[in-house]
Nucleic acid binder design. Structure first.
Lengths: 256, 256
DNA sequence: CGAGGGATTGAGATTCATCAATCTATGTGG
DNA sequence: CCACATAGATTGATGAATCTCAATCCCTCG
């Protein structure tokens, strides 16, 4: 395992500015008055690029930064001693990475990129000052955390109480609606989907073999199919129904 | 289903005051300077008693209040259309109930008492003002939410990746340490434990029958036993080891 | 063109759920 | 104080869902 720091490559030129950020409506600085953005931006120490499939921080180790996903996908996860891995959340543009109760303590989970990605980095040490001095950011952070809590609780329900096909239906329909909410320009039922079958298994608490069989069955039932990093939805109503996912709850996820 | 409101019985006399609250170190007003407590207490509209096994708010319905558990145990949970129930969290004294991203929206989960209990009620409508005007409370709420997020993620890991006996070991050892942290006077390895085997199943994603068999096995292995609302721990080290629970993480839970 | 990671399929074992019955403790009404 | 009612605990038998091990296939990339 190489030093995790080498996975973060600082962007020397062409860093984006918060006042012109295209995903601000999704992110931490949503709701910050325009004339305060240049000040809040001073807390963003820099932007980093990350290659696909790189860890950016790890459970039980310290991490200097919290991040906002500017571009790309991440998985946050925990691992057991026997190597089993549980993906806790898929982070999409606008989502926060690495916030936790005790900012100074070692991380309680790990995070890794699923695609090439760009991150905005905030030094943990300066977060208390930012939250103390800017009520909009503080309020927004609370909102984002509560949103993530809701997502986490929904996943607990699905993993604890649903069958394999139901879990996958829930997982994919939720992700599908989140993607649509972010990349709203595309009306298609095909979306980019960089997760391997093993990733899906780690997220839903199933083995990759069983994920494979279940996906085959879903394909044959005309529900959806995944191939070459593309998720094609064939019957979104049936899929949501099967997974007990209510698209209206994505409203709660958007928060803008 | 009767009106949920009838489950809350207002305490007419003898309401406790925040300045003398014995569990404040665990609760929302931890960290609030003494001379601000009488002001913050004005946001607590009143205290309620609740009998055991009563619902206090329900998923998809509005709820007038957020609560702090003053006395007793609660379960927060979600249910599926087919009646299956997932317990998301066991709330103990000091814990918050009913906070969520959009305070005005219908509840995203339900909550019910497990024992006779006492609650401090805060009108949702006034929370924004409290959070805006008092930095200590706002900071503390963030901390409590992040703590609950950590607990939720740990449960996701255990339910997604561990076997029945491991899940129960995790669940019980975590709860055991949380209880010890709250009722620190008792040094015994026996603690009050009001959950039925069905509750344990709903919390761990198992059927009550399988919980029963697994508990029998744990009893025979000399790990722990549960009888007449009492949890007796026989080998806490083995239990933590089996469930992959690190007692040090309870430090993160305490936050005081 | 070869290498490697992910996808696919098969066979067999295991864990856990389901159905059904009995037992036990606790509380209630007579 | 006892008989009964009820909820929770316990046990057995059976079946389904999912995991594990093993092999092969396929696609992509160098």
């Amino acid at each position: 395992m190489a030093d995790l720091k080498t996975n973060l490559i600082e962007i020397e030129n062409n860093q984006t500015v918060c006042t012109e950020c295209s995903i601000r409506r999704l992110a931490l600085f949503h709701g910050v008055p325009e004339d305060e953005l240049s000040w809040t931006q001073t807390f963003r120490s820099c932007q980093y690029t990350v290659a696909a499939r790189k860890e950016i921080y790890r459970e039980s180790l310290a991490s200097e930064f919290m991040f906002t996903v500017y571009h790309g996908w991440f998985a946050i996860f925990k691992t057991l001693g026997n190597g089993k891995r549980q993906i806790l959340r898929i982070a999409l543009p606008g989502d926060m990475l690495g916030f936790q109760a005790d900012l100074e303590a070692p991380m309680t989970h790990s995070a890794a990129s699923l695609t090439d990605a760009v991150l905005c980095a905030f030094p943990r040490r300066e977060m208390p000052e930012l939250l103390r001095k800017n009520l909009s950011v503080s309020k927004r952070l609370t909102e984002l955390n509560a949103r993530d809590m809701n997502i986490c609780q929904n996943r607990l329900l699905t993993i604890g109480q649903q069958s394999a096909i139901e879990r996958i239906a829930f997982f994919c329909s939720e992700l599908f609606f989140r993607i649509k909410a972010i990349y709203s320009e595309q009306q298609s039922d095909d979306v980019f989907f960089p997760l391997s079958q093993e990733d899906i298994g780690d997220a839903t608490g199933l083995t990759k073999i069983h994920v494979n069989r279940t996906l085959k069955s879903m394909r044959e039932q005309g529900l959806m199919e995944i191939s070459s990093k593309c998720l094609k939805i064939h019957d979104i109503d049936a899929l949501c129904n099967l997974g007990n996912f209510d698209p209206a709850t994505v409203q709660t996820y958007r928060l803008y």
